[in-house]
Simulated assay, not measured.
Amino acid sequence: MYLPDAGAPNLLGALALLVGSRMRAAVTGPAGAGGALAEALVVLKDQPGVTAEWLRQVLGLTQPGAAHLVRRLGEHGWVERRPGADARSRALHLTPEGVAAAQDVLRARETALAEVLAPLSDEQRDNLADVARTLLRHEVTDRRSLAYLCRLCDRARCPACPVHEGLRDGGS
C-alpha cells in the first residue's frame, strides 16, 4: 500500500477547495445562483430528455429539492417538460435560452479554471492532466457516477474523456 508523504493529502485537499470555490463563484453569476442550478443547466445541455428523478440522483438532491430546481429552471424559461418514456415521466429539455445560459456557465467555469492553471508551465499542466486522468478513470462505477463527475464539464473540450473511458473499461 502506498502511503503518500505527509503533505500530499493536505495539498490535494487545499487544491480541491480552491478549485471548487473558484468554480462555484464563477458559475453563480451566469446562473443567478450557484450549485445545483448551474449544474442542472450543464447536465441538461449534454443529456437532453432526462427526467427530474435522473437529475435528482446525479446532483444529489432530495425529491423536493429536485422539484424546486426544475420549477426554478422553468421560471427562468430555461427548461421545458415534454412527454417522457412512459405516461408518468416528463423529459426535461433546455429551451434556446437554457442552452445559452448553459454556455454562459461553461464559459465562466473555463475562465476561472484557466486562472487557477495560469501559474503552471506547459509541462506542469500536462503532468496535472495525466494525474487527473489516472485518478478520475478509476472513480466511475456506472452511468450515474459518470454524469455526477462530469456534471460541470464542457464535454466538447474533452473528446477522450478519461471518466467515460473508465466506465467503458470497467474502471481499470
Score class of each variant (00 low, 15 high):
P30D: 12
P30R: 02
A52L: 07
R24D: 15
E39T: 00
P30H: 13
A31P: 03
A36Y: 04
L41A: 14
T28W: 03
A40V: 07
T51P: 03
Q57L: 12
A31I: 04
E39P: 01
V43H: 05
R24M: 14
A31W: 06
R24F: 10
V43S: 10
G29N: 02
V42M: 09
G35V: 02
M23C: 10
W54H: 15
V50N: 03
Q47F: 14
P30I: 13
A25P: 03
R56A: 05
A40D: 11
V27W: 09
E53Y: 08
A25I: 02
Q47M: 11
W54D: 15
L55E: 07
P30S: 14
A26Y: 04
L37M: 05
R56I: 04
G35A: 03
V43T: 11
E53A: 14
A36C: 05
G35S: 02
A52F: 08
W54G: 04
A38D: 02
G35C: 06
Q47Y: 15
K45E: 15
D46S: 15
L44S: 10
T28Y: 01
A52Q: 15
V50Y: 01
P30V: 12
L41C: 12
L37S: 00
L41R: 01
R24L: 13
G29S: 08
V43W: 11
V43P: 03
A31F: 06
A26H: 02
A33C: 02
V50P: 03
G29T: 10
P48D: 15
V42N: 08
A52I: 06
M23S: 05
A40L: 10
L44W: 15
P48Q: 11
L37H: 00
E53W: 07
R24S: 15
